[in-house]
């Protein structure tokens, strides 16, 4: 989902920065508030950031014959909401842009928008809806993380399509081309990300259920099966 350095026309690069900066700024405010008001959530915050670090470093092969990577932002979105997660994603994307020439500084705004904002928002909304539907913690986490991951890659396809419409078919034909690369490749990876995120949330619920309750991820400890 990394749009390479310089591969968005300046106009679009600027546009995605304008879209992303307010969210990240709001996330920073929220992050400060959270650390001050609930300092005991700090360790889980570190884990959510670390999880995105690990997962976005793993480039996995997909059935389509190309490699892509999960985003790891589902965990943060479920625990802390999309705004704070956008800050975590920004850290990851900056690391990759500076040290790996993966993504870039000019395309940072666009990449933050897909991985740090749209993906986490989708994961957050799906998780809330699943919680209401009462389908259980693990299935809810799975669906939220998988759909959030996938939404990130659909967003990248849209971003490239609007910047590079084809001469004949326009934006829509272009979207089909990029979606074939990103969205289709991502399906098995999104499922994998859903599974891994569900596993880690399950484990967190075993060792630190208090933090999950405080963040209102879990309603009461009775709702969690204890082993």
């Amino acid at each position: 989902m990394h749009i390479m350095e310089g591969f968005l026309p300046p106009m679009w690069a600027l546009f995605w920065f304008v879209m992303s900066i307010p969210v990240v700024a709001y996330g920073l405010v929220q992050l400060n508030k959270l650390v001050k008001e609930k300092p005991e959530t700090k360790s889980l915050l570190a884990v959510a950031g670390a999880f995105a670090f690990v997962l976005s470093a793993l480039k996995l092969p997909s059935v389509t014959g190309s490699c892509s990577h999960p985003t790891g932002t589902g965990l943060g979105a479920i625990c802390f909401g999309p705004a704070i997660t956008s800050v975590l994603a920004t850290v990851v994307l900056l690391y990759q842009a500076l040290f790996l020439a993966h993504g870039g500084l000019t395309t940072l705004g666009a990449n933050i928008f897909s991985m740090g904002i749209v993906g986490p928002v989708v994961a957050y909304v799906v998780f809330k809806a699943c919680k209401k539907a009462n389908i259980g913690l693990m299935p809810a986490v799975f669906l939220a993380a998988a759909l959030g991951d996938w939404a990130t890659y659909v967003t990248t396809s849209v971003q490239l399509a609007v910047a590079f419409p084809t001469a004949l078919g326009g934006t829509f034909a272009s979207f089909k081309i990029f979606a074939t690369i990103f969205a289709v490749t991502q399906v098995p990876l999104a499922i994998a990300e859903g599974i891994v995120t569900a596993l880690i949330v399950n484990y967190i619920s075993q060792v630190r259920v208090d933090v999950l309750e405080q963040l209102k991820v879990i309603v009461s400890s009775k709702a969690v099966s204890t082993s």
Partner: peptide
Amino acid sequence: EVWGGADGLAEDKITEIAPDYEPWFSPIW
């Protein structure tokens, strides 16, 4: 199979769709 990165494939497609497009910035390092 090539198992190349999807990001790179997208880059190729961009050059295909817009052959005149020149990346206007390259990674600092």
